[in-house]
Deep mutational scan, measured.
Amino acid sequence: MKTQEELTEIVRDHFSDMGEAATLYVQVYESSLESLVGGVIFEDGRHYTFVYENEDLVYE
C-alpha cells in the first residue's frame, strides 16, 4: 500500500503533462489510505478536481 505522499506524487506526475501546476491540494477529510481526493490549479487558471483510487485517476 502506498503512502499519501506517494499517491500525491503519482497524481502530480500525471498532471505535469497538462502544464505548470500552481497548486495541488488534497482534501484530507475525504481521502484515505486507499484513495486521494483533491484538486489541481494550473498557472493558466484551469482547475480540476480528482479522485485517485486503485491506480485509477478520475478528474473533471
Results as ranks from 00 to 15, higher is better:
residue 50 F to W: 06
residue 10 I to E: 04
residue 13 D to H: 14
residue 12 R to N: 04
residue 12 R to D: 01
residue 9 E to K: 14
residue 17 D to C: 15
residue 56 D to R: 15
residue 8 T to R: 08
residue 22 A to V: 14
residue 54 N to C: 15
residue 46 R to L: 04
residue 3 T to S: 09
residue 42 F to W: 04
residue 23 T to K: 09
residue 41 I to M: 06
residue 41 I to W: 10
residue 35 S to I: 15
residue 25 Y to P: 01
residue 28 V to M: 10
residue 54 N to D: 05
residue 43 E to Q: 11
residue 46 R to A: 03
residue 54 N to A: 07
residue 23 T to M: 12
residue 48 Y to G: 00
residue 16 S to A: 12
residue 15 F to D: 01
residue 59 Y to M: 08
residue 50 F to D: 00
residue 20 E to M: 13
residue 6 E to T: 06
residue 3 T to D: 03
residue 57 L to T: 01
residue 25 Y to C: 12
residue 40 V to L: 05
residue 30 E to Y: 13
residue 4 Q to G: 04
residue 43 E to G: 10
residue 14 H to L: 15
residue 29 Y to K: 01
residue 40 V to P: 01
residue 6 E to V: 06
residue 40 V to C: 08
residue 39 G to T: 11
residue 25 Y to A: 03
residue 56 D to Q: 15
residue 5 E to P: 05
residue 45 G to I: 06
residue 7 L to D: 02
residue 6 E to G: 04
residue 29 Y to D: 03
residue 11 V to Q: 03
residue 53 E to R: 11
residue 18 M to H: 06
residue 36 L to K: 00
residue 28 V to H: 12
residue 56 D to S: 15
residue 11 V to I: 10
residue 1 M to N: 10
residue 48 Y to R: 00
residue 52 Y to D: 00
residue 27 Q to A: 10
residue 50 F to E: 00
residue 25 Y to H: 04
residue 33 L to H: 08
residue 46 R to T: 06
residue 16 S to Y: 08
residue 18 M to T: 06
residue 17 D to A: 15
residue 54 N to P: 03
residue 14 H to A: 11
residue 1 M to P: 12
residue 34 E to T: 09
residue 6 E to D: 06
residue 6 E to M: 09
residue 29 Y to P: 02
residue 14 H to W: 14
residue 31 S to Q: 11
residue 10 I to N: 03
residue 46 R to P: 01
residue 48 Y to P: 00
residue 2 K to L: 10
residue 16 S to C: 14
residue 18 M to R: 06
residue 16 S to I: 08
residue 28 V to R: 07
residue 50 F to G: 00
residue 59 Y to H: 05
residue 15 F to I: 04
residue 40 V to K: 01
residue 3 T to I: 04
residue 34 E to S: 13
residue 47 H to E: 04
residue 13 D to V: 14
residue 54 N to H: 08
residue 41 I to S: 02
residue 23 T to V: 13
residue 33 L to M: 10
residue 9 E to P: 02
residue 53 E to N: 08
residue 19 G to S: 05
residue 27 Q to D: 11
residue 41 I to P: 00
residue 12 R to M: 11
residue 54 N to E: 04
residue 54 N to G: 07
residue 47 H to D: 00
residue 48 Y to Q: 00
residue 48 Y to F: 11
residue 9 E to I: 11
residue 45 G to M: 03
residue 37 V to I: 11
residue 47 H to P: 00
residue 52 Y to I: 06
residue 16 S to F: 09
residue 37 V to T: 09
residue 39 G to L: 14
residue 23 T to D: 06
residue 18 M to G: 04
residue 3 T to C: 14
residue 22 A to P: 10
residue 34 E to Q: 15
residue 13 D to E: 13
residue 4 Q to S: 05
residue 48 Y to W: 06
residue 11 V to N: 02
residue 37 V to H: 07
residue 28 V to F: 13
residue 24 L to Q: 01
residue 4 Q to P: 06
residue 36 L to H: 01
residue 33 L to D: 07
residue 28 V to P: 01
residue 58 V to D: 04
residue 31 S to L: 10
residue 51 V to T: 08
residue 12 R to H: 04
residue 34 E to F: 08
residue 49 T to S: 06
residue 17 D to Q: 15
residue 53 E to C: 13
